[in-house]
């Protein structure tokens, strides 16, 4: 999972303070594992260095210094590329895929595209496995089947997510 792309994606809807970013991330993707602020800070400085974000302004108040980050055009392109690139079919992808889908929705991109692309990638792997299975012996078949069932589970989750995109869109927009 790429925290950098995720934070970038979150910035697409408007400039934010680092602390806001952490809160948004935790709310949408963090679940029971909140992001350490240090990770936000280091990621942002890396993105800043690569020219994907700029500092929109600095707020100096009673507390610590607060930078406000905004995404650059390069940054938007980077998010786009990341979303369009299917993940390597591997078990337990759901957190990454989920993040991608939500981000796509948040940034008003076509989430179905993300799913289709991923499905295609999965199927490519499954075809290879199926082919191997057909040519192989029983051991091959059993091993391939294990992988196939995992990949299929991913895809089924994908399909389910796709079917619930509308509901998800509402939930995300809230």
């Amino acid at each position: 999972m790429s925290i950098g792309h995720t934070l970038l994606g979150l910035l697409e809807s408007g400039p934010r303070h680092g602390y806001d970013l952490k809160r948004a991330f935790d709310e949408k993707f963090g679940h029971d594992r909140p992001l350490h602020y240090g990770q936000v800070y280091s990621t942002m400085s890396r993105l800043l260095k690569n020219g994907l974000v700029v500092v929109d302004g600095v707020e100096t108040g009673g507390g610590p210094e607060r930078k406000r980050y905004a995404i650059t055009d390069d940054g938007i392109t980077d998010v786009q590329r990341w979303l369009a690139t299917p993940e390597k079919p591997e078990p337990y992808l759901q957190s990454t895929l989920y993040t991608k889908v939500v981000l796509a929705l948040l940034t008003h991109r076509d989430a179905a595209d993300v799913l289709d692309t991923q499905r295609s990638e999965h199927l490519r792997s499954m075809r290879i496995l199926t082919d191997r299975k057909r040519k192989g012996d029983l051991a091959d078949q059993l091993i391939c089947d294990h992988a196939l069932f995992h990949l299929e589970a991913d895809l089924r989750w994908l399909e389910l997510t796709a079917a619930r995109l509308d509901k998800l869109r509402e939930a995300v927009a809230r």
Binding site: D116, R119, S120, H122, L123, M126, R127, L129, T130, L148, F149, L151, E152, L155, R156
Partner: peptide
């Protein structure tokens, strides 16, 4: 998907 894996390519 496992049935579709018998195909050469897929159309969505």
């Amino acid at each position: 998907a496992r049935v579709a894996a018998y195909s050469d390519r897929e159309v969505v």
